[in-house]
Simulated assay, not measured.
Amino acid sequence: MSERWIEVADRVLVRRHKELDLSLGLVLGEDACLVVDTGGDVVHGTNWATEVRAVTALPWQVVITHAHFDHSFGTAAFLPCPVWAHEACRAELVAEGAQQRSHWAQVYREQGRPEVAARITGTDLVLPEQLVTDRAELDLGGRTAVLVNLGVAHTSHDLVVHVPNADVLFAGDLVEHGAPPAFEGSSPATWPAVLTRLLELVGSRTVVVPGHGEPVNAGFVTRQRGQIAAVAELATAVQAGDLPEQEAVHRSPFPAEATLAAIKALTTRNRSGE
């Protein structure tokens, strides 16, 4: 898959990226536009900003759905502009941003991709200044983008971006298409309830844009909620000593790696009292 645009609704676009199967968003109003996530490094962010400028000259704002590197490390390319995120997203970038940068640079070096590692190492982290606790509404001119935190799930600070008059919802990594959800550092026990709240914003024709993969619909989100709930139940049984880990892997709707990550995430949270 090469990089390509998908217009998912009137003046709402998704840029699909081969790297990590990433989906980035662009919402156009009459007076301004909103960029949803910024990519994984300085070069990726610069290329993404160039693609946005090829579509529109409108002044932009940026929203970061969560602090993971592939969604937030390209922000410097869009400055100066308002950068929105959940307040805990900023806190995580302060606490763990440099560690993320070192970790992912090492991952790419081990994959034999030193050029990507160098891009990540050379990236300046940008801290969002427009902070959301529960909800914020952005007036783009004739169109409102609603930023909402629905609870702890993929991270402690996931934001969804709802565009009601286009019937589109950008879900970040609360929803994954084409690969299992990423459970590292997540809260498997509360993730299904967050997706239940997400589905309250979604109708039968709503386009849901995952952080990775092709756009999906409410039926897909409902099925994934059920799968995550099943994995959370298995992980709870393992953590309680009621089920062997390998049996949980055998029963899981997800591959072994994802299931083991969910078990680890649940165990870590229970030990920390979260």
Rank of each mutant, 00 (worst) to 15 (best):
M1L: 07
E3W: 13
R4E: 10
I6N: 04
E7M: 02
V12Y: 03
L13T: 03
L13E: 08
V14K: 05
V27E: 00
G29I: 06
C33R: 07
L34A: 00
V35K: 03
D37G: 00
T38W: 07
V43K: 09
T46R: 13
T46G: 02
N47K: 13
N47D: 04
V55F: 06
T56A: 06
T56C: 03
A57W: 07
W60I: 08
V63E: 06
I64A: 00
H68C: 08
D70H: 11
H71G: 03
S72C: 09
S72E: 01
T75D: 05
T75V: 12
F78H: 09
P82K: 12
W84F: 07
H86Y: 03
A88N: 04
A88Q: 13
Q100H: 05
S102G: 00
H103A: 07
A105N: 08
A105G: 13
A105E: 11
V107Q: 15
Y108G: 01
R109L: 13
E110Q: 08
Q111E: 13
G112N: 05
V116T: 11
R119D: 14
T121R: 12
L125Y: 01
L131M: 06
T133M: 08
D134R: 15
R135I: 04
R135S: 08
A136M: 04
L138Q: 07
D139W: 10
R143D: 12
T144E: 15
A145Y: 13
L147C: 10
G151Y: 09
H154Q: 11
V163F: 08
P164K: 05
A166W: 10
D167W: 03
D173F: 06
G178T: 15
A179N: 11
A179D: 09
A182V: 13
G185I: 09
P188Y: 10
T190C: 06
P192T: 12
A193C: 08
E200P: 04
S204L: 04
V208R: 07
G211I: 08
G213T: 05
G213C: 07
V216K: 00
T222R: 15
R223A: 11
A232C: 10
A237Q: 15
A240V: 10
L243E: 08
P244N: 12
E247Y: 03
P253E: 15
E257N: 11
A258R: 12
L260Y: 07
I263L: 01
K264F: 05
A265R: 05
T267Y: 07
T267R: 15
T268Q: 09
R269D: 01
R269L: 01
